[in-house]
């Protein structure tokens, strides 16, 4: 595992953050969160977790952080919850399953059964990972959002 590779997640998230029209002041936080999430997933994969499970852990980290940070900074929660998980999209698995499908359709490859298996594995991995990212990023806000927001803003008012 090369932890420096995760810095690319900051560049990857930048374009999406701009498409989402996030306020400029939130860009550094979003980029930092994307790098941290990518690093967390890389550590999970290094420890032998499957891609969807490691992605779920990373997305939950993003979701919980967003649920805590957004009310404290007065921003809408999706600003911190949505963009940072985009660099975790399983592009390679999605692409491999598409290439496998095209090869199957064109009759390329010696063993059709093996090709079908590989396409099914890649497509399942990609689909489960995308579901894990979506559920992980959004569920903390839906389940704990109000409570965390109240806790955070109460603390803020106590601190002055």
């Amino acid at each position: 595992m090369n932890p420096w590779m995760s810095l690319w997640a900051a560049v990857a998230v930048l374009g999406f953050a701009m498409v989402f029209s996030v306020p400029r002041r939130t860009l550094p936080g979003i980029m930092a969160l994307a790098v941290a999430a990518h690093l967390l997933r890389a550590v999970g994969l290094e420890q032998g977790m499957a891609l969807p499970a490691a992605s779920l852990v990373a997305a939950l980290f993003v979701g919980v952080t967003a649920a805590v940070v957004a009310p404290r900074t007065g921003e809408a929660t999706p600003i911190y919850a949505f963009a940072p998980v985009i660099p975790l999209v399983p592009g390679t698995a999605m692409f491999d399953s598409l290439i496998g499908l095209l090869d199957l359709a064109a009759g390329v490859g010696a063993d059709t059964a093996t090709s079908v298996d590989q396409v099914a594995v890649d497509a399942t991995k990609a689909t489960l990972t995308i579901i894990a990212l979506a559920v992980g990023a959004i569920s903390p806000t839906l389940v704990l959002g109000r409570r965390i927001a109240r806790l955070v803003t109460d603390q803020g008012s106590l601190e002055g």
Binding site: M5, A10, V11, A12, L14, G15, M18, H38
Partner: peptide, 23 residues
């Protein structure tokens, strides 16, 4: 607009490059 269009297009290009580097 929060960001000018040209900046968003360049940033999306950067996202593509960063994804490629990550892969």
């Amino acid at each position: 607009r929060v960001y000018p269009v040209w900046m968003v297009m360049l940033a999306l290009g950067g996202s593509g490059a960063a994804f490629a580097a990550l892969f």
